[in-house]
Amino acid sequence: MGWAHRSLIRMRDLTAEDIVRILDTAAACKDIFRRAVKKLPTLRGQVMVNLFYEPSTRTRTSFELAGKWMSADVVNIAVPSSSVVKGESVTDTARTLAALGADIVVIRHPAAGVPAMLARSVGAAVINAGDGMHEHPTQALLDIFTIRECRGTLAGLHVLIVGDILHSRVARSNIWGLKRLGARVTVAGPPTLIPSGLERLGVGVSHDLDRVLPRADVVNVLRIQRERQTSGLFPSLREYTRLFGLTRERLQLLKPDALILHPGPANVGVEIDREVMDDPRARIEEQVTNGVAVRMAVLYLLMGGRQDAMVA
């Protein structure tokens, strides 16, 4: 079956088949890590631009490694948000990238919708590495890959996403992907951090973490931004931790075979305790490794590769 997508902007656009295809390809990519020589020639001669309008070490490095292992020429453009001319036109950026000969553009931007605008105005394949509060598809894919790797399937699993759902592109992308693959999804957090209309996505909402934790097969703990406190969304980090932190004490509520995920970087002691991160049920470091595999798979599929050719 062919791969229909030129760009990867949002999980919402992917079918269950698309997602499984990416996961299967990622599994093959992960095998390559075990080789002594990691390079694949797939993207030789292709220019991949990492265009980051927000600071990011983890995601940018992950994309960079994925590109390099596929033999692409990788260029990083970090645009510190302080130097972004307010109201700089996305179209102007697109023209610049076209002039640079970019074949693949990985973009992270603080405003929702920018990767889609870019995809419309450049010939290159565009990968959304996070746009505002909208989506972060490769993060969702690596979370789902990690779950599938441990549990074999997503169907019927109960995934709990804890924290600031309102501002989270990770939560939104996860919800689309998890629902497509047949998982049950519940979000937990204070009402001020839960966006409206989630029930229309078939997502359960809870404000009582202790009640939902024992029923979860997977707990995905989101990073809490400290500045949400000053904007009045919750009274203090201490109270947040008390109500929604995945603390050492709450570990006992978890199923023995539950998985603990965190997209990183974690605020240790706020949304998650060190002991929880070190618990054998946590897969947080594995998520980082899987991120590279998933991004290699996405690059491969977007650039027209065939899965059998890679495995061979």
């Binding site: 919402r12 929702a112 919708g113 746009d131 505002g132 509060m133 909208h134 989506e135 592109r169 939104r172 966006p195 409206s196 209309g197 989630l198 229309r200 996505l201």
Partner: peptide
């Protein structure tokens, strides 16, 4: 408008 559509677009409502 704040609602289902602002939520899925990741736009403030």
């Amino acid at each position: 408008h704040e609602g289902f559509h602002s939520t899925i677009h990741g736009l403030r409502g």
